[in-house]
Design a protein around this nucleic acid. Structure first.
Lengths: 241, 241
DNA sequence: CGGTATGTTGATATGTTTCAAATCAGGTGG
DNA sequence: CCACCTGATTTGAAACATATCAACATACCG
């Protein structure tokens, strides 16, 4: 697995420049960030932080996917967050981290040592404002997921996850709104940990959705969605809007 | 049900002055807040906002308890947040709200119309900074609850909820660390909606915990915890720390 | 080309829900 | 002060969904 630090002389060329925690920054603020940022990469499967670790740095996902998970003493695992490009990792004003953070795919991070970053939040208001926005969005997403975990059936859970991924793909790939196709970026086990299910149940429900024509796949990862509204109807939510 | 606006000439006398979104404000910032704040009260059971409503104001819980809930079209309900005194309600930069907010007890709010409050965040940095802290804390709490909802058994869920309430009470009432007693501030139905269970299961598990001597109660609301560590052991988490 | 991860399928066990009925607590009016 | 009413809670029996245990199939990778 080889990595190269993206060829970025300046943040101007950064792929997440207008979505990440720095997106509201003026040129002079960017310059300050630029002086203290550094890149780190992790291979798929590597752990970025273990729960309980000192939180030495915070940062943005430049590319790849990372998961936040909590584990009970007897080994039960629940994913509690999924970080995609532009998402922010870590939290200011906290000495240690309380979840594992794992690279689900190869990962590139734009990092800041935590202490300097905390000072920076006080100096450059646009960083704090953007971080507040992003945190509020994450909180909304977490609450949405609490509804899924607490009240939905296994079939509805799977449909909800697929629907979320599918709509996210549509957003990234403008074009035909129907007949969506995407590569599942996560394993059955990761799906299970996300949804509070076992891998067997995930597998069975995927098969059931396929049998009912809601989704189609031959390769286990390459999912096709003939009609996104039909999929949404399986999530238990209203189809409208 | 009668309410009186607390006798507060100034924020100085406010019971949540040093915990709420205003806690970091300097006297000059407080003065600005003071000019636009207003109080509103709601009786237990009243709905403050319905999901989809225009978010006309935001504000702090001065006293009482409010819940955030999401409802599926077929009537399934999941609580996704519980607001206690000093907690913040609503979110800046969002036109509508996506959860119901209900007064679980009589409620007193310190409100700000949303638009002026949004401007205020940009002008008075300490409000935004504190709001970021509070939002990050809420996100942590939401993730903790995702673990409960996704991976814990009914018995562990009940124990987790009771443990949370018990420890919160201990924090408020310094004194004997063992032999805790508290009044459950919520009904069995509210507990069920919080935990993703039915009221029958809640009732059965409460009875089971009582039978096993983990908790004690004659009145359905007045709970005694003989040994808080024994209760914690039932949550499925590590007892240490 | 074997060996290991990952994923699928089947049979059974288990925990929680569902449906139904009984009990309890608090408030109201006689 | 008591009988009654209502909503909240408890309890029981049966149905159901998901987990568990076990075997097998498939894809991946050196």
């Amino acid at each position: 697995m080889t990595f190269s630090v993206p060829n970025m002389k300046s943040c101007t060329d950064c792929p997440i420049r207008y979505n990440a925690v720095c997106s509201k920054c003026e040129p002079d603020e960017i310059e300050i960030l630029e002086q203290i940022k550094y890149y780190r990469s992790f291979a798929a499967g590597q752990t970025v932080f273990f729960a309980g670790d000192l939180l030495e740095f915070v940062g943005s996902i430049v590319s790849g996917v990372a998961s936040l998970t909590r584990t009970l003493p007897d080994g039960r695992v629940q994913m509690v967050g999924l970080l995609l490009p532009a998402d922010f990792m870590g939290r200011p004003n906290r000495e240690t981290i309380d979840t594992d953070i794992v690279a689900e795919t190869d990962l590139m991070l734009c990092c800041f040592r935590r202490k300097p970053f905390e000072k920076l939040i006080e100096q450059t208001p646009h960083v704090g404002q953007r971080l507040l926005e992003m945190t509020l969005d994450e909180l909304d997403a977490a609450r949405e997921w609490m509804l899924v975990l607490g009240r939905k059936t296994a079939r509805e859970k799977i449909a909800s996850l697929l629907y979320m991924i599918a709509t996210r793909m549509v957003k990234l790939t403008p074009g035909a709104p129907e007949k969506i196709s995407f590569i599942l970026p996560i394993t059955r086990e990761t799906m299970a940990n996300y949804l509070g299910l076992t891998i067997e149940t995930v597998s069975r429900q995927m098969t059931a959705l396929k049998k009912d024509g809601i989704i189609a796949f031959d390769d286990r990862r390459d999912i096709k969605v003939p009609d996104i509204d039909v999929l949404k109807a399986e999530t238990g939510e209203d189809v409208y809007s």
